[in-house]
Nucleic acid binder design. Structure first.
Length: 505
RNA sequence: GGCCCGUUCGUCUAGGGGUUAGGACACGUCCCUUUCACGGAUGAAACACGGGUUCGAUUCCCGUACGGGCUACCA
């Protein structure tokens, strides 16, 4: 029997969703698309101490912006397995049922140790030169739990309402072998796995129990998550096994991490010199908000394209893909094992590629707010023409202004380098003659201007086109000069030329 | 420290027992353009190291080095 593909993205609402998380969501989404399956959003809010206001909403909005919306789950209409928020599922007693089952079969036990007692145990272990103190098959023998306490004592403690956790009883020395879709077979000895807490003293499940219960109940076919989960996967295998669900458990896929471009480690939101969040994120606990890809001028399709190629590739030389295309060709067999350093420079290039695919009208529409903000009024046709001229020069919409503001404003000063080099005592006379010629020109379009300039050179002397450009715009570079003159129009162009001539005397 | 995972140009990567080790970003040069950019061409640039296995290893195996992850009543 082949299971229907059902994958989930299951973040914790502990902050803004960063690009690594989005990439995990994306790969889940693409895999679901590829196999015509379901993509589910589950909110894993089992840690009440780390809950952050607005995080859940942010996650939902970010997925929407990226165009990788789940078809089931929190914020996306729920579905047959609702609720999809673990805190709500806990109220239903779902997790306790499974925990009780494990206790019943002797694979889990109650532990009454206080955090102080746990600290003391760790200190003792460290003093005894144990490098990694663990609550495990050895140390649990000296702790206060239902394995060391008598049945009566345990009963009494429970009746008295003594706080307890439920721990997984991990065997002392047993090979645990499991297959990962991306990494192949992984073998770990159970001596390396601690007796993981399954149910916390506040009654909430930990991730380890909760995700397993939910993946089973929600009929998840593939558990796709970051590499940071690989070390705890053996414990998860044990839980499935002790629950008698090993044959029903989802296939595992551990994704490589996205690494910091310079130096090492996972991308850090604090130190990064590039956006790490898709949308800007204001953490209620912090002063300054983080600016997002959206606010930095990235198109969602570019952002998604960048992410898709971090740790995966199509096996061809093509690099530009829409989400739809990716959903047809993506699969785990071409996902890497090793982490990928993120390159902000290449990210910009991707955005440029998408910007250039936009029509002049679309670009103009996006640029209008900038003009409006500056109090500049121009008709649509003018703005479109402007965008057409400058689109080859920009990577982001906001650069239209930086690159071409001289179209909308009279030059305040003239590029010094060019003036120093090219403006001499004969210039004023020469360009005044040019001005006179242009005043008499009846047609003002790029081709006519081009021809007339050529002709002018034979009649009034050699013109320096870059100098002309500087007289008109103030800056040394820009789009085709004749196109630019045509865009400015005769009156504006000549006014600028006159102004320059008088200022430069 | 221990455990797990990894390692092809600076970066993202293709490839995979016999290749001039391919592409993209960034960088250099040239062409196009009466400027800049775009585009085109081109250059520099990589199989971490040491042992095996093999006629032959960048490719397979083992070590080492390096990188990363994990090592909570966090996910």
């Amino acid at each position: 029997m082949i299971k229907r593909v059902r994958v989930r993205f299951a973040p914790s609402p502990t902050g803004g969703l960063h690009m690594g998380g989005v990439r995990t969501a994306l790969f889940n989404y693409l895999f679901a698309k590829k196999h015509g399956g379901d993509f589910i959003l589950r909110i894993e809010d089992t840690d009440q101490t780390r809950f952050v206001e607005g995080a859940e909403e942010y996650i939902i909005n970010a997925l929407k912006w990226c165009g990788i919306a789940p078809n089931e789950g929190v914020g996306f209409g729920d579905g047959p397995h609702k609720p999809y928020r673990q805190s709500e599922r806990k109220e239903l007693g779902i997790y306790k049922t499974y925990a009780d089952k494990l206790i019943g079969s002797g694979h889990a036990y109650y532990a009454f140790d206080t955090s102080q007692e746990l600290d003391e145990m760790r200190k003792r272990m460290e003093a005894a030169k144990v490098v990694a103190p663990q609550y495990n098959a050895i140390t649990r023998q000296n702790m206060r739990n239902s394995l060391t306490l008598s049945e009566d004592e345990v009963k009494k403690l429970l009746e008295n309402g003594t706080p307890y956790v439920v721990r997984l009883k991990v065997p002392r020395n047993e090979e645990i072998r499991f297959q990962d879709i991306i990494r192949g077979w992984v073998t770990v000895n159970s001596s390396q796995v601690d007796d993981k807490v399954l149910l916390k003293s506040d009654g909430m499940p930990t991730y380890h129990l909760a995700h397993i219960v939910d993946d089973i109940e929600m009929q998840i076919s593939h558990a796709v998550r970051g590499e940071e989960w690989l070390p705890s996967a053996p414990a998860h295998i044990l839980i499935y096994r002790y629950l008698g669900l090993e044959n029903e458990m989802p296939l595992l896929a551990h994704l490589p991490l996205i690494l910091n471009p310079d130096g090492n480690g996972k991308i850090s939101k604090r130190e990064a010199r590039f956006p790490v969040f898709p949308l800007s994120w204001k953490d209620p606990r912090e002063e300054t908000p983080y600016i997002g890809y959206k606010e930095s001028g990235y198109y969602p399709e570019a952002f998604v394209n960048i992410l898709a190629l971090l740790g995966w590739n199509p096996g061809t030389n093509e690099e530009l893909f829409s989400v739809e295309e990716l959903g047809k060709i993506f699969d785990f067999d071409r996902v890497h094992k090793s982490g990928a350093k993120f390159d902000p420079e290449k990210a910009k290039w991707f955005n440029q590629q998408y910007l250039r695919k936009k029509s002049d009208a679309e670009l103009a529409e996006a640029f209008k707010p900038v003009l409006k903000e500056k109090g500049i009024v121009r008709d649509d046709k003018f703005i479109e023409e402007f965008c057409k001229l400058l689109k080859e020069k920009v990577q982001f919409t906001h650069e239209f202004w930086e690159q071409g503001k001289y179209v909308f404003e009279m030059p305040a000063h003239y590029d010094e380098k060019v003036i120093t080099k090219k403006w001499n005592e004969t210039s004023k006379d020469l360009y005044t003659k040019l001005l006179t010629r242009l005043e008499n020109l009846s047609n003002w379009d790029a081709i006519i201007l081009h021809d007339d300039f050529a002709l002018a050179q034979t009649e009034i002397g050699k013109l320096d086109m870059q100098l002309v450009r500087v007289l008109i715009t103030g800056v040394a570079g820009g789009p085709q000069l004749f196109d630019l003159l045509a865009l400015l129009g005769k009156e504006e162009s000549l006014t600028r030329l006159r102004t320059a001539l008088s200022k430069l005397s």
